[in-house]
Design a protein around this nucleic acid. Structure first.
Lengths: 391, 391
DNA sequence: TTGTAAGCGTTATCAA
DNA sequence: TTGATAACGCTTACAA
């Protein structure tokens, strides 16, 4: 081994190119290219020889050259638009990203990941990536009810998949079309199978411009309501996340539907929105508990707020689950380390990421525009939910 | 607007190239290149005109072409080697990444972010990135006491910066395996201050192969000890993270030094290692609290374990901070949502990321190999630490 | 101060 | 089945 300083400084070894392989295998460059890309037009013998030499030399295609020549950058993009401070405690994104990469890296596709401050920056970044030909496609997260991104991406012709589902159904408070689905019945409005259905826009309109993978928040909310209603809860408040997000709207809508279905009073079963922070989660909880007839159960849209809410209850000496039941939407270590441990809606987030990546690859391969549904989350009942004490 | 389906499908608008600009501005391609890259050799007038046309056309350099021609890929890499399950609740990485990108994106440099299962995959990925010329440099996180990555990267000649500090001081013969502290003789007292200096390799050897940015864990631990000792604690246990990580070793070492300095009993002031998970944090806490003379204070190496520990105390009816004080190494929403709120060591993680990115850029610009120290973290005293009750 | 032309490493088009 | 050869879009000598 050379001296450390020298090693760190020395010129990098030259990377082998196709030309090197061609020379060494005694064939032309184009033969090498064909051989290495599994294209017809080269004999088995030559192919094998070329492969062996490439292996020996440790050759890997120069991604820039490939991108310049072919049309593919060999990379996908993922932008997270969040103010730096709110880059929180959530395990959601890292898990999502890990699932995405499981699929992409198997195809030697890299992931460009960028955190920006806001939606405008995100759009600007898409434009730049597009102009620079940096990425072959992008995954759009945190879809909103009024989202400029699909239109932009469609206009740019940059393949994209929306992760997290289509926007909520239109501003229809009564939600007549999803009216009275009996539990378990595979309702026509919510296809359990992931078929591209542009014909059934009522409850879950496939996004008009981009393919979409999403979780069925409506059914998930129904499961939570089943659980709480079954325990005897009649005053249930949903502390939701950011009002602009599509899934927030879907959850709020679903809570209404489920409340109506059971003839519950809408003044006692409703949603309030927050910014997902522990601070707003705690604040909302305080307000609710101060009311004349406080809820007997609260559903939080993320784990951090749920834990914050549990903490507020503890401060006030309100027993959980005796006087207040708590459900967290999204499970994580947080829900298991608190005391009592929190009942949570468990999703397979890496699986969701894999699904999204697969769908993006499908779009790149010219697949049809469609809406794919992820696995339905299940409710993990723990110690924070129980039959409410009378009163 | 065209019909949605058509918009999504239609061929993307052609991206403008230098040739387009040249034609439109009535100059040669090379003049355009010079003008846009701030190189001498074109008149002010031409430069202005070219710039204006480029602006009009919304031109952005094709990253592949630039990478192929020049030597720069215009991207950096960051690999996180973690089993998918342990992709936890930590806010650390997203914050680090956001800081890194603040610096990189200002220079139009992208970040390739990849999550892999283990260190071998990480090394393989570096080789691939190098061979593919995908990245100009990488940021190495989670440095280990015995780390193969610096040597690999140095050998490849891939510029890199180690984020998180140099490995711990060499093997300490007195080092008892974590968990069973021997009443070893006090080792030579280390200097309380740990300056990054090549002349003082004992405490903090700058990494021999790569530039490094790091936080002074020794001083941070000293601060925690100051706080707890000042409150009257004499039985203090440090529930550390993964034993192989460099900063874990530094913290363990520092705890010993600080204990010795104050004449504390090493059987009562020691470290145990874990895998950072809530489960192991809770388990270690249970074991400690079951001991004949349980600690009066526990320092946890991350926020998740600290919250888990607090939960264990709550389960057993051990008042915090009355009978047990708790300190979390690294602050996050978690520490603020629990009840009581946890005293935590607060670091400027985005700032640390910025520093790392700056250092990487410096290395790329041919700067010297060096070790840079981040801002010293401070201890945010909250409600989980107090004078221990007698007994 | 300008324009011409030769690369960078692939892929893709054609003859041979 | 092969092997030249021309793109791809940019940078950079080198000439004008």
């Amino acid at each position: 081994m050379t001296a450390p300083g020298e090693a760190a400084r020395r010129k990098p070894a030259r990377r082998p190119t196709i030309k090197d392989i061609a020379r060494r295998a005694g064939v032309s460059e184009s033969a090498v290219s064909f051989a290495l890309n599994d294209r017809p037009g080269v004999s088995q013998d030559t192919r094998a020889r070329v492969r062996r030499v490439a292996e020996e030399l440790g050759w890997q295609a120069n991604s820039a050259a490939r991108a310049l020549s072919g049309e593919r950058a060999g990379a996908m993009g993922l932008v997270l638009a969040r103010p730096a401070q709110t880059l929180g405690v959530e395990s959601f994104f890292l898990q999502l990203v890990s699932g995405i990469q499981e699929v992409l890296s198997a195809r030697q596709i890299a992931l460009l990941f960028q955190v920006v401050e806001d939606l405008d920056s995100e759009c600007a970044l898409y434009r730049r990536w597009w102009a620079e030909r940096r990425v072959d496609g992008v995954l759009v997260v945190d879809p909103r009810t009024d989202d400029p991104r699909p239109e932009l991406l469609a206009a740019l012709g940059l393949p994209a998949v929306v992760v997290g589902g289509p926007a909520a159904p239109g501003p229809d408070p009564a939600e007549p079309s999803a009216g009275e689905p009996s539990a378990g019945e595979p309702s026509a409005t919510e296809p359990a199978t992931a078929e591209p259905s542009a014909t059934e826009p009522a409850a879950t309109p496939p996004h008009p411009l981009l393919s979409t993978v999403w979780a069925d928040d409506a059914k998930a909310m129904a499961r939570i309501l089943d659980h709480l209603y079954g325990l005897g809860h009649r005053r249930i408040v949903h502390i939701a996340g950011l009002p602009g997000l599509a899934h927030t709207a879907r959850r709020i809508q679903s809570l209404r539907t489920e409340a109506d279905r059971r003839g519950l009073d809408r003044r006692q079963v409703h949603s309030v929105t927050t910014d997902y922070s522990d601070a707003e989660g705690a604040e909302a909880t305080r307000r609710l508990l101060d009311a004349a007839r406080p809820p007997t159960a609260i559903v939080y849209d993320n784990d951090v707020m749920a834990v914050a809410g549990a903490s507020v209850a503890a401060e006030r000496g309100i027993p959980v689950p005796g006087a207040l039941s708590i459900v967290a939407w999204d499970d994580s270590a947080l829900c298991r380390v608190t005391h009592p441990r929190l009942t949570a809606l468990v999703r397979d987030t890496p699986g969701f990421g894999r699904l999204a990546a697969q769908e993006l690859l499908a779009v790149l391969d010219g697949g049809p525009l469609r809406t794919v549904q992820g696995e339905l989350p299940h409710l993990e009942a723990r110690e924070s939910t129980a039959t409410p004490s009378p009163g």
